[in-house]
């Protein structure tokens, strides 16, 4: 069991070392049997992983991987915020005297924006927002896979959904302030992804998605 775990840890270390240090990853793997014979495979593998992580900021491929993970992790709170906001009740920007703090404490004043006239649109709006949330949740996954075709498709879908939400809001005479959060989330996401795309195009020129640098 420990040996299996150690092999798994070494696989992660191998991925962290990237193409530039592929030989070193194989060298570490070559020593694993000796570590198993010695009864310390996990200690050995953990050390190799530490080495690999320390190496990452030293080369561009590693820095890109670290940044991609940071961006991907940074996108998750945006999706979570939208999700929590939707669950807390549409619209999700607080209004009244409670402010943000009051909203988080559940004590903020809620101004119902949907009137009996436009309440029938609530399911459509909720579906739209949940669609945007799903899009924001999938985006980090595709970014880490460097599947830029899917990233571009998802970016278009997210943009279209946000614009539709914007139009809905306008048509229903709702408070446009509640569009701030989805619009900000989309803008941050698109800018971060565009920067990552440009960077990866420089590093992985000619390499198909998900493959190491040439």
């Amino acid at each position: 069991m420990t040996a299996i775990l150690a092999r798994a840890v070494l696989t992660v270390a191998e991925a962290c070392l990237g193409d530039r240090r592929r030989d070193w990853a194989s060298a570490m793997r070559g020593e694993l049997d000796a570590a198993i014979d010695d009864g310390k495979p996990l200690t050995f593998a953990a050390g190799c992983l530490t080495s690999a992580l320390r190496e990452m900021p030293k080369h561009e491929e590693g820095r890109f991987a670290l940044t991609s993970h940071a961006v991907a992790l940074g996108l998750l709170p945006l999706a979570a915020l939208l999700m929590v906001g939707t669950a807390a009740g549409f619209p999700f920007l607080p209004s009244g005297h409670g402010g943000i703090a009051g909203w988080f404490a559940g004590a903020g004043e809620h101004q119902p924006l949907l009137t009996p006239w436009n309440r029938g649109f609530a399911p459509a709006l909720a579906v739209l927002i949940w669609g945007i949330v799903a899009g924001h949740l999938l985006m980090p996954w595709f970014v880490l896979e460097r599947n830029w075709d899917r990233v571009a498709t998802l970016a278009r879908v997210n943009s279209a959904a946000t614009v539709t939400l914007f139009l809905f809001t306008g048509v229903l005479f709702l408070d446009m302030a509640f569009m701030l959060l989805p619009a900000a989330a989309l803008t941050i996401e698109l800018v971060a992804i565009w920067q990552l795309y440009r960077w990866q195009a420089h590093i992985f020129a000619g390499a198909p998605p998900g493959t190491p640098a040439a």
């Binding site: 070193w24 060298a27 570490m28 070559g30 020593e31 000796a34 570590a35 010695d38 200690t43 050995f44 593998a45 953990a46 050390g47 190799c48 992983l49 530490t50 080495s51 320390r54 190496e55």
Partner: peptide, 18 residues
């Protein structure tokens, strides 16, 4: 070999490989 060096020097893999 790397593992033999580790044992001989007392360095851990996290120190030796870098």
């Amino acid at each position: 070999h790397g593992y033999d060096i580790m044992k001989e020097t007392g360095l851990l893999s996290g120190t030796l490989y870098p």
